[in-house]
Amino acid sequence: MKTVIEAEEISRNFGKVKALDNVTFSVNEGEIFGFIGPDGAGKTTLFRIVTTLLLPDSGTMKVLGFDSIKDFRELRKHIGYMPGRFSLYPDLSVEENLNFYATVFGTTVNENYSLIEAIYKHLEPFRKRLARDLSGGMKQKLALSCALIHRPRLLVLDEPTTGVDAVSRVEFWEILQGMKEHNITVLVSTPYMDEAMRCNRVALIQQGQILTIDTPDNIKSGFRGKLFKIKAPGKFKLINAVRDHHNTLSAYPFGDSVHATFFNDTVPEDFVNYLTMKGIENVQITESEAHIEDRFLELMNI
């Protein structure tokens, strides 16, 4: 398997803030590699270093065989970058934006149309419309078309689905899955844990440090304790009661239930009675597979 990105011990500070603290990872050709972490974790800084837009304070970064510092001019020809903020020309039309990006990279829209056809066909009816007048979902599709028009070997997407509705998000991920056929590697970031499941491998990142890198399934199965899902009406009372039991190791809200782990990995014998005494009824307890967010929480608590 060919390696497309090789980052070693990358650090970058902004004043006193350690945006990236000794980050090492590699990305293989053709994979969708996701960086999952909250705002301020360092995702954008890292992507700006990968795309040669920012220099690291220390560490080395090889992308597509090029050194991201020395060979930045050559490297830029092979990367498509979609920043988190919409950055096309608002006063150019859809068509003009696309032509502009093609020209900048020394190519034409016709030459690479097959690559963007599936995405661009949704925009075709609006090709004369100014970019600023497009809806959020359409802006995103246009930005992706522009990032792909020079047929890059690596596509870098910084939070492409933030603020986009669930339907457009699913469509967007379907498009990314299709990049593999064109031999394009995808590096993508998101603050949303559920999107991790759509990547081949993910890195969980927090405060400039990588907590773990693995396939989504392996990350989930890395959860060490036995997780129980507890449901009952009146969540505020429930969470406090669960947390107060002397056998409880952890308890936190998760969707419609409370996720909890217990001493000895078993639900205490008197637990349902205990909850009833606290005025909580209709309790359902099930053993549950950990979600990727459970593992993230476990890693944060170390």
Binding site: F228, K231, V267, V272, N282, V283, Q284, I285, T286, E287
Partner: peptide
């Protein structure tokens, strides 16, 4: 992967 362990069914 999840099996009921204890508690009451959620008929209500």
């Amino acid at each position: 992967n999840s099996k009921p362990v204890t508690g009451y069914p959620s008929s209500k």
